[in-house]
Amino acid sequence: MRAFDYIAPDSTESVVAALAAHSPNARLLGGGTDLIVDLKHTSNTPKVLVDVSQVEDFHGIEMTDRGLRIGSMVTHTEIMKSEIIQKELPAMVDAAHTVGAVQTRNLGTLGGNLVTCVPSMDSGPTLLALDALVTIAGPKGSRQITLEEFFVGPRKTCLEPDEVLVDIIIPKENVGKPTHFLKFGLRKGQALALVNAAASFHVGDGNIFSAPRIALGAVAPVVMRATKAEDFLAGKEITEANMAEAGEIAVTEIKPITDFRASKEYRRELVAVFTRRCLAGAYALHQSRA
């Protein structure tokens, strides 16, 4: 790696001040599992690395009046071990468990995963399916936006160079919402997703889909919602046929590419099957809790 300076501020304010002083020549460092790999292979090295992994405001998983707050520097391992997430949102545990291997999950953070913003990111689909919000701090104070707005393009979020991701919030009404996540990789361990997917819905009176959400990864420039499939399901009876139909509709919404991992045709097949299975998985979770 080429030379850089290293600072490790301990508060949101000092991170923002450091960025104001050094951006655009600064990069934020979380667990480093994306950034350090990049820095080994680029000549475009930042002058300063601002290590945000020790900032207390960026840690912790807790219920607040707005919902479940997860600090941006919470690791995938911490998500897997969180009792409240295990109980309320086991799909997040499943998603975290598919990220790399133990060593990667011990260092890699939720915030780093979202900011890197590759289409195959494994934490994206579940969080999109739960209407997650993100808190961003910068020189003008802090703002909150939806995760959907946060994702702009492949490896591009709406973060300005002088801004930092503080936390991720699952709105209160979605904490406990039946959700299911699935990932398909070329191997069982340590493989990036050919397709990953999540679905969530509340079970409405008369056994209908209420607030259905379908989110798909690695089949478009960013993790995306299949809104036509969601609209089709809303208010309909929860049946296997409707789940399968939603899968077929979702296929019409994606823009998969062919790459060395899979063809676009194969990704389409996976989306039809995974949408159906994620919906079925969410329903099974609902039934197991009842």
């Binding site: 460092l29 599992t33 350090i36 290590d51 060593q103 990667t104």
Partner: peptide
């Protein structure tokens, strides 16, 4: 457990 190749010594 961590991959020591991805962690800076100062971290």
């Amino acid at each position: 457990s961590v991959n020591a190749c991805l962690m800076l010594a100062v971290q």
